[in-house]
């Protein structure tokens, strides 16, 4: 078949050439884009990328990835804070000595400190002096108080070592009952339980919101991708009709939409990461006082949180690529 279709030379050509008559440069001017002339021909991607739907798709992907990233970060931050709270509570406990008839409070305090320090798992024990106790009560009783005249309980602050467990508190309680009858151990059990319930509830709510946001993200991205592919249905048809194999068409679209997905996900995920990164470093840059530091500290997330955001971004890009693939196949089945 080669050479069968011999094209006649220009002189013999009956071809219409109305605009050929010496108008050099006219075409560049009419194209309105001189760069189009210098660009190596045939390099433009087959799948159109500058369409309104394509831009909308990038925006949808970026926004949804951002929201999912924020949610992951927030859940991760909540879980960190909850873990910290519970750990703080568990690491501290107090011994209370109630003044009673003829009780030598100071001796009882000293004894309690001694018992506590002797208990394995206790890192430190320290009696709060009357002044410190008074400071604690200031908000309620005002300044200039003589504690000696009031039956105010005195406290021993006990810090537990990292090795402490439930047995440590039991041993401490037993030792106190035996040697300092006037002492009672406040292990914050109720408070700790309530706090841990709160932390668990917060985590459960966070995970539920995360699940909803993840579902919404996947749905939005799927629907938007499908719409974008449907908008390019004409391109699929033309490629099909000029003899492209299905695998060629599908891989062109999949490559294009993977790039779109990665771009959108990088924008959204990057913004979420930047937000958390700023949240965790800004306070120290601006040397805010500790109050604000702890407030904004809630925004701090760890590597796992950053990993989660990157993970969701990758997931979104994959969903985009796979949806485009499935939609192109469906379109092709509809054509023939």
């Amino acid at each position: 078949m080669t050479g069968r279709l011999r094209r006649p030379g220009a002189a013999a050509a009956p071809a219409p050439a109305p605009e050929r008559a010496g108008k050099p440069g006219a075409q560049a001017a009419r194209a309105g884009n001189p760069a189009a002339l210098s660009r190596p021909a045939g390099q433009r991607p087959i799948v159109p990328s500058a369409t309104v739907t394509a831009r909308a798709l990038i925006a949808v992907i970026a926004i949804m990835t951002f929201l999912a990233g924020i949610t992951i970060g927030a859940v991760s931050a909540v879980s960190n804070v909850a873990a910290e709270w519970t750990a703080d509570i568990a690491r501290e406990t107090t011994i209370e000595i109630r003044p009673g008839d003829g009780l030598d409070v100071e001796a009882a305090l000293a004894k309690a400190v001694e018992v506590a320090k002797a208990t394995p798992g206790v890192a430190d024990a320290r009696a709060l002096d009357p002044a410190a106790t008074a400071r604690l009560l200031e908000p309620w009783l005002g300044t200039g108080l003589d504690l000696a005249n009031l039956p105010v309980p005195r406290l021993v602050a006990v810090s537990l070592a990292a090795t402490a467990d439930a047995g440590t508190l039991e041993a401490l309680r037993a030792g106190l009952t035996l040697q300092v009858p006037s002492a009672s151990l406040d292990d914050h059990r109720l408070w700790a339980e309530r706090l841990s319930t709160t932390a668990h509830t917060a985590m459960a709510i966070g995970l539920a919101v995360l699940a909803l946001v993840a579902a919404a993200t996947v749905l939005c991205v799927t629907v938007a991708t499908r719409a974008a592919v449907d908008a390019a249905r004409f391109v699929v048809e033309v490629l099909h009709f000029v003899g492209a194999r299905d695998t060629f068409i599908v891989s062109e679209f999949q490559r294009h939409f993977l790039a779109v997905g990665l771009k959108g996900a990088a924008i959204g995920g990057g913004a979420a990461i930047a937000l958390f990164f700023l949240g965790s470093t800004l306070p120290s840059w601006l040397s805010f006082d500790r109050q604000i530091d702890t407030l904004v500290g809630a925004l701090t997330i760890d590597l796992r949180g950053y990993g989660g955001i990157v993970g969701v971004a990758v997931l979104v890009a994959l969903v985009t690529a796979l949806t485009s693939r499935a939609t192109v196949y469906r379109t092709l089945r509809g054509i023939s």
């Binding site: 189009a36 021909a41 045939g42 433009r44 087959i46 159109p48 500058a50 369409t51 004409f234 391109v235 048809e237 033309v238 490629l239 009709f241 000029v242 003899g243 492209a244 194999r245 060629f248 068409i249």
Partner: peptide, 21 residues
């Protein structure tokens, strides 16, 4: 006609060869 509007005339005409890889 069914020409692709985002490709130049040249690229449209070359399309059947391009899709053959």
């Amino acid at each position: 006609f069914r020409l692709l509007d985002h490709l130049s005339t040249y690229e449209n005409v070359a399309l059947p060869l391009r899709v053959q890889g």
